[in-house]
Amino acid sequence: MSSTKPLPAALQRWAEQRIGPVVSVRDASHDWDRSRVWDLEGERRVHHYLKVSPSVTFFTRESRAYHRIVPALGHTRAPHLIDSRAQDMALLLTAVPGAPAKELGLNTTQWRTVHQQAGALCARLHEAAPLDPADRVEAEASLSAAADGTEKHLARAGDRLDHDEQQLIRDHAARLRRVGPVPVGYIHGDNQPRNWLWSTSGLALIDFERSRPAAYVQDLVILATTQWADHPDRETAFRRSYGRELSDAERHALRCLTALDAVNCLAWGPDNGDAEVTARGRRTLDRLMKEDRS
């Protein structure tokens, strides 16, 4: 982490009014400028997290998630919201046990178990609450909205893609608009091992700021382009516990979405110095190009 971010005194006072005296504060932010998260330790070594959202949109999404869908995961399977402070876009959360799965050096069997539990939690999240009418409209338009962003990402990526690669992306965006109806609801929005906490208690999901109404299959894109690309056994474990097979339309949509994810990664990654995201985009695009030529 490049620098430690101090917790504003007003937010610590607000938190202490709800959870009691704070003995120590640890900056638990991700290593990017807009991430602001603190681990608050209380007198009896009870920990809570205070998060300041990076935008009104993220604060609104995460607040809705903690009220509407996160409770369905269960007491130890996700943080729970203690209180929020809209003027500061602040959320005060319980802590759940574990560390991000991607940091733990898990073996093959452990990874399968993690994906098995992730599939079950993902299904529980997707089934947690019915969409209200406005959210249903947004969810049913989510695939078209993803396709709508294609030209913006292509322009930003520029010459990082050659002509044939750009055409492949445009073709997949056009196909995405034609896949037909797919199941929709509330999704996590950033469903991947950095947001999966693993411990002896099992798996917990965190970080719901990208939760939104969308096609369920959009929650599988990052997994398909990272974890599952080299480890089909992990995909099998996830899907078995997810509880249903993807429809033909969903499988078609997932392939199209991986193409759009690739150009997004190649637009965002280099501009933000993120080698991991850049490599993800390049690898996905190379794979799709190879498959289209075969």
Rank of each mutant, 00 (worst) to 15 (best):
D190G: 07
E138H: 15
R293P: 06
E250M: 02
L92E: 02
I69W: 06
T4K: 13
P232N: 04
R124F: 09
R178V: 08
A129P: 15
V46H: 11
S3T: 11
S201C: 10
D83C: 05
E16R: 00
P100Y: 05
A9P: 08
T284F: 00
P71C: 04
I206N: 00
D261H: 14
S84T: 10
E103H: 15
L104N: 03
W14L: 05
P6R: 12
L154W: 00
I169C: 00
A128G: 02
N272F: 02
T57E: 14
A95M: 08
A9V: 14
M289T: 12
R13H: 13
K5L: 09
D39H: 12
P130H: 06
H126C: 08
H172P: 03
E62W: 09
R251Y: 10
R68Y: 10
V277G: 03
L197H: 00
L246C: 10
A204K: 01
A118H: 01
R64Q: 10
D132P: 14
F58T: 11
L131V: 02
D230G: 14
E291P: 09
E209G: 02
R282I: 05
Y186C: 05
D31M: 09
E245H: 14
L176E: 02
H67A: 14
A237C: 07
L73W: 00
H48Q: 06
A65E: 01
V184S: 04
A78D: 06
Q17W: 12
P130Q: 08
L223E: 13
E151H: 05
N107L: 09
F208G: 00
L125K: 00
P79G: 08
R34W: 08
R210H: 13
Q116M: 11
Q227P: 05
Q166F: 10
T94F: 06
A134H: 10
A253D: 09
G158R: 07
A214W: 01
L40E: 01
R34S: 15
L81P: 04
P213M: 03
R234V: 08
V37W: 02
Q110G: 08
Q166Y: 08
L11Y: 03
P8Q: 00
A174Y: 08
S3I: 09
A259C: 11
R156M: 13
T57D: 11
W111F: 06
L50G: 01
E250F: 05
V217S: 03
G189E: 02
L260P: 04
A90T: 01
L197I: 02
S63C: 11
I19C: 03
R112L: 13
D83R: 13
R283G: 07
T108L: 14
D132R: 12
A145Q: 12
Q227M: 10
S144C: 12
N195G: 03
P97C: 06
S2L: 15
Y186F: 12
Y186V: 07
Q218S: 10
G105S: 05
E209N: 05
A15T: 02
D190R: 02
E140K: 04
T278A: 07
R177M: 04
P21V: 07
L205M: 09
E41G: 07
R68W: 14
H252G: 14
G180W: 00
Q116P: 05
G119L: 03
L176G: 04
E276W: 15
E138C: 10
A123L: 09
R34V: 09
K290A: 13
A249K: 00
K290W: 12
I19M: 06
Q167E: 15
D33C: 15
A155H: 15
R287L: 11
V221R: 01
P232W: 03
D171A: 13
D33L: 10
G158E: 06
